[in-house]
Nucleic acid binder design. Structure first.
Length: 277
DNA sequence: GTGCTTGTTGGCCA
DNA sequence: GTGGCCAACAAGCA
C-alpha cells in the first residue's frame, strides 16, 4: 500500500497513539526478514522503557525517535501496515513488532515482508535517513532538476523514471500513473523525448499530486481520516485504475492496462497521446 | 492450478 | 563506470 502519503498516514497513526508514552517492545518473530541488517535484540533493549519523542515521514519511510537516543526506522515495503490496537489485543499471524504502551499496542504487520525495520542509536538521525532525497513538495525540487534527471535517464520509459526514488522520493506505482495521466503524457514515452513544456507540466503535476495526496490521505494538521483513502475524489485515476472496464474520469474512454517499465501501468488512450508524440 | 499485487535490490549485459 | 532490464524476495487473492 504505502507510497508517500500513506507513509505519512501510518506515521501519524502511531504518533497520535504513542507520543510521549513509554513503550515495551514485543518481538514476535525476531528472525523475520523485516529485521534484516539490524539487531532486534539491541532494538528491544534500547526501546523498552523509552518514550516516543517525535516522528517524521520522508518518501516511503518513517522514523520514530525515542528518548535515550534510540531511533526506529520503518519502511512498509509492498504490504506493510502500522496499526493501533488495545493493549490486550490478539496477535495476528503477520505481526512482527509491537510497541506496547499502558493502554494500547502499536503494531507493525507485513505479510510479504518486503518491508523493513531498522534500529539506530545516537544523538543524530541515521545516515540512511539523511540521504533520502529532498521532498518533491520542497523548494529544492525544481523543474531544472527534473529536466536534468530526464536527460540522464533519456532512454528509459518515463513511467520507470518516475519510480526512481533518488529523484522522485515517495512516488510509487499508482502515484506515477496519476501524475502521467494528469500531465497527459504516455507512460511508455522515453524520458529524453519530453519537450521542455511537457517536462514543466510533469514537474508541476508531481508537486500537485504529492500535495493533494498528502492533504487527502494524511489529512491537514492533526486530522487523520478514518480510512486511508476515504477522501480521495472519484475524479482521480486512482479509483478507476484497477477495476475491470474502468473508464477515464475525464474522457469516459476505457482505460488501458499494460506492463511498462516492469510494472502494471494504467493510462488513458487519447488523453495521453502516443508513444511517438 | 494460474497469474496477478501501491517495492527494492542485485546481477547481467550493452 | 553508467544505464536499462529483469528475476527474486513471500504471501494472499481472484
Amino acid at each position: 500500500m504505502p507510497e508517500l502519503a500513506e507513509a505519512e498516514f501510518f506515521r501519524k497513526r502511531w504518533h497520535q497513539a504513542g507520543a510521549g508514552k513509554r513503550v515495551r517492545v514485543v518481538l514476535l518473530h525476531p528472525g523475520a526478514k523485516i529485521f534484516r541488517g539490524t539487531s532486534p535484540a539491541a532494538l528491544r533493549r534500547a526501546l523498552t522503557g523509552a518514550r516516543l519523542v517525535s516522528s517524521e515521514a520522508r518518501a516511503k519511510q518513517m522514523l520514530f525517535r525515542f528518548s535515550g537516543g534510540a531511533w526506529l526506522g520503518v519502511h512498509l515495503g509492498m504490504s506493510g501496515e502500522l496499526h493501533v490496537e488495545a493493549a490486550d489485543w490478539a496477535v495476528g499471524k503477520h505481526d512482527h513488532l509491537v510497541l506496547v504502551t499502558p493502554r494500547q499496542a502499536l503494531v507493525f504487520t507485513d505479510p510479504r515482508m518486503f518491508g523493513r525495520v531498522q534500529f539506530h542509536r545516537g544523538t543524530e538521525a541515521p545516515g540512511w535517513w539523511a540521504r533520502i532525497a529532498p521532498a518533491i513538495t520542497s523548494e529544492t525540487f525544481t523543474v531544472e532538476a527534473v529536466a536534468a534527471f530526464l536527460r540522464r535517464r533519456a532512454k528509459a520509459p518515463i513511467k520507470a523514471v518516475l519510480l526512481m526514488q533518488e529523484r522522485f522520493p515517495g512516488v510509487g506505482n499508482w502515484m506515477a500513473d496519476e501524475i502521467l495521466w494528469r500531465a497527459a503524457i504516455h507512460p511508455a514515452r522515453r524520458a529524453g523525448s519530453l519537450s521542455p513544456a511537457e517536462t514543466r507540466t510533469l514537474w508541476r503535476e508531481c508537486r500537485r499530486v504529492c500535495r493533494l495526496a498528502l492533504d487527502t490521505i494524511a489529512g491537514r494538521g492533526d486530522y487523520l481520516p478514518p480510512d486511508l483513502n476515504a477522501h480521495i475524489p472519484k475524479t482521480w485515476l486512482f479509483w478507476h485504475r484497477w477495476e475491470d472496464g474502468g473508464r477515464c474520469p475525464r474522457t469516459g474512454v476505457p482505460l488501458v492496462r499494460e506492463e511498462i517499465g516492469g510494472r502494471t501501468t494504467c493510462w488513458s488512450p487519447g488523453r495521453q497521446g502516443g508513444v511517438e508524440s
